[in-house]
């Protein structure tokens, strides 16, 4: 097995799993019905993608772990999701901002992964990319509408952006694992992703009349398993049933 490839696949799977789990909390609670449905559908797509990534991660690891084993029976330090996705939902506008920042990076990532030399990675990326395109279309459009909406909506979106922006650096910052994945051909081209994600962010934020602070310190750690305190609570909620009743089926 390739330890680096397993790590790389866990990053892909864990980021989609955790943001899907976070979005799922809005089901039945979003401010309007259409958005409630949209957020739940987005969560469903992302959790579906996580299932495919983690299923493949388990096969690459070769220890017989399934996608469910990886999702429900690993502890915080073993998760490889980026810090952005574990940031609290906050109010609905903050969730939308987090989603936009994620989608604007996720789409170019999946576009690049389609040329992976690993046919399984390329197939999952091809499928997920079509979904991510709709996700970005929706989140970018809502960020613009709220950014250009009332003074109140503008201010809330601006505050959400300032709070979340420090977590975008980790998305486009390539480390050793990313480098190995790219060099071996199964990983994505990190330079292109960074350029396109930055392009997507700046285009929409400019149109939305929102600004980022240039000299902010970027936060990272999620990709190597160093998570925020709040992450433990996310896992507790997500994993408690599976751990209380291991092997339960319906």
């Amino acid at each position: 097995m390739s330890a680096e490839k397993f790590e790389y696949l866990c990053r892909l799977g864990d980021s989609t799993l955790i943001i899907g789990q976070q979005l799922g909390k809005w089901c039945g609670h979003a401010p309007i019905l259409e958005e409630d449905i949209a957020v739940a559908n987005t969560a469903l797509d992302l959790i579906g993608q996580a299932t495919m990534w983690l299923d493949y991660a388990g096969k690459v690891e070769g220890k017989g772990r399934t996608a469910d084993d990886l999702a429900y029976f690993r502890d915080s330090r073993a998760f490889r999701n980026v810090l952005l996705v574990e940031q609290p939902n906050g109010e609905f506008g903050a969730t939308l901002m987090r989603q936009f920042l994620f989608d604007a990076w996720h789409l170019p990532l999946l576009e690049q992964l389609q040329s992976s030399t690993d046919p399984e990675i390329s197939a999952i990326a091809e499928k997920a990319e079509k979904e991510a395109r709709y996700h970005l279309r929706r989140s970018a459009s809502l960020v613009k509408r709220l950014g250009l909406g009332t003074d109140d909506s503008h201010q809330r979106m601006q505050e959400a952006l300032l709070a979340l922006w420090p977590f975008t650096g980790e998305l486009i910052e390539a480390d050793d694992i990313d480098g190995i994945a790219q060099a071996e051909g199964y990983g994505a081209d990190t330079v292109t992703i960074a350029e396109e994600a930055c392009g997507n962010w700046s285009k929409t934020l400019l149109q939305a009349g929102l600004v980022v602070s240039e000299d902010v310190g970027m936060r990272s750690g999620g990709k190597t398993g160093l998570h925020s305190e709040g992450f433990g609570y996310i896992l507790a909620e997500m994993q408690s049933l599976a751990r209380a009743m291991p092997g339960a089926k319906w």
Binding site: E34, I37, A38, T42, R133
Partner: peptide, 30 residues
């Protein structure tokens, strides 16, 4: 054209009119 919802070309399946508008990007199923 995935990811694009060009409403002018989407006809109402009930009356056939092209005068339609998008309510939400997502519906009752994905």
């Amino acid at each position: 054209c995935a990811g694009m919802l060009v409403r002018a070309e989407i006809k109402c399946p009930l009356c056939g009119s092209s005068q339609t508008e998008l309510v939400s990007e997502f519906g009752s199923t994905p």
